Simulated assay, not measured.
Amino acid sequence: MTNRYLNRRDLVAAGALDWDAALADVHDALALLRDGKAEMAAENVLPLGTDPRAKGYGLPARVGGRFAAAGLKWTIHRPEAPQGGEAITSRTFLDDLDTGLPMGVVDSAMLTRVRTAALSGAVVRALKPRVRRVAILGAGAQAEMHLRMAQAVLPDLAEVHHWTRSGRALQVPEGVLVRSHKTASAASLAAEVTFACTSAPEPILGPEVMTRGALVLQTGFHEVSFDAIDRADAVTCDLWGDFARTSAKSLFQMHRAGRFPASRVAADAPAILLDGWRPDPAACVYFSSFGLNIFDIALAARLMRRATDLGLGQILTD
């Protein structure tokens, strides 16, 4: 197999924004993990200064089946985008599991956002398939990607309720009503489903948002207060693993503070997407999305194989 590099344009041309394919990748990667045909090692975390949001992460995984790849995603998170740069930069290095040969390198900053939004979409489609009103908190790249996903996978979407500290507007498609709110809580309370996609170092959502039938998905840094998580009828997450000891996500901070035992997790992503776990319709559900290494490798491998078939990307020489 030829060793190649894929930039964002190559990834889009290979189908990175095909949401049906991305949701299928998430489902299949979880099924392979359950069958012992996929595996993740705990992430390596490299602090990049005193700000807890400034870190480098190394996330290795292997995913068998149709992906047949092993690899490492190396990503750097900064609190703010530096001048002339980006807040998050990321590359994924892939090897073919069958041959042991390198497949190539993927610019995976955009792909990270796709896989995160794909998991959110899969969870919402499973738990609230007829949702009409969503809240999006934040106006950065992850918030924009969640909006793209919501357009594609939520056919009844009619209203987007938005809040961001920066005041920057989202690019909302024609035919969808958008309302801006002065607080994160107000946006969340106006919606059935909330996508929290910010880098907030302190909670912006309190227990008041955990109302009857609400679904709150946290993909950002530390957006949901411990009291809010306590108020939820069902606390769910993508997976409970070794990262519970190190992650700065709200749920794992709460766990390390002794306020949330692992036994209280009502369901994880495999239970929701593979086993059909469903809460009472009136239950308030909180979902903490950490981001699983297997999703990074699965999406990158599918797109690398497709790009190779299409002749996309830059060939890397010895």
Rank of each mutant, 00 (worst) to 15 (best):
H77S: 10
L273R: 06
V63Y: 13
Q218D: 07
F252S: 12
N3M: 12
A283G: 10
G84F: 10
C237R: 00
Y286F: 15
C237D: 02
Q151K: 14
D227N: 14
V178R: 12
T112F: 04
S188I: 00
V12M: 03
D233T: 09
A228N: 01
V131C: 06
V235F: 00
S108A: 05
V124E: 11
S120Y: 06
A301H: 07
G104A: 02
T211W: 05
A13C: 08
W19A: 06
P60G: 05
I294P: 02
T50D: 04
H162L: 04
G64R: 08
V134M: 07
A282N: 15
A143Q: 01
A61Q: 06
L111G: 02
G291D: 01
A307T: 02
L97D: 11
V123P: 06
A283I: 15
G65M: 06
R278H: 15
A126M: 02
D318I: 06
D275R: 08
P60C: 05
S289N: 14
W163M: 10
M145S: 08
L215N: 09
F221H: 05
N44Q: 09
L303W: 10
N3L: 07
V134W: 02
D227I: 03
H161D: 05
F93M: 15
S225W: 02
D18G: 09
V131D: 01
D242F: 03
R259L: 14
D296E: 14
I294M: 01
L97Q: 09
A150K: 04
P79Q: 08
A187E: 02
P173S: 04
A228F: 14
V114D: 01
A228W: 05
T112N: 07
